[in-house]
């Protein structure tokens, strides 16, 4: 089971490190990652494998959003199916 994480906010040192540490603690493996700076905003998109994670996905989504608040960036985690549904026929 895969999820997509987005991180959007002002770029600063340690964002990637903090997100990766959080995911490692949850037993979530990063499958793909891309990052870019768009109009001054740091934008990172990750595809992660959540099948080994024992915490329910709904709770992980809430926790990672809170982690984002601590870091001062906007982090979302969504089940991959919503993106597949909207963009793949």
């Amino acid at each position: 089971m895969y999820a997509i994480i987005t991180v959007v906010g002002k770029d600063k040192i340690g964002i990637l490190s903090a997100v990766c540490t959080f995911l490692a603690q949850k037993n979530i493996n990063i499958e793909d990652i891309s990052q870019t700076i768009l109009q001054g905003d740091f934008i990172m998109i990750m595809r992660v494998d959540v099948s080994q994670c024992t915490t329910p996905l709904a709770e992980v989504a809430v926790e990672i959003a809170a982690e984002g608040k601590t870091l001062g960036v906007d982090i979302t985690l969504r089940h991959e199916d919503i993106f597949n549904a909207m963009h793949n026929v």
Binding site: T76, N84, M86, H87
Partner: peptide, 12 residues
């Protein structure tokens, strides 16, 4: 992987 544009489209 789903394209970056599509991901940001949905989030937006």
């Amino acid at each position: 992987m789903i394209s970056k544009i599509d991901v940001l489209d949905t989030v937006n």
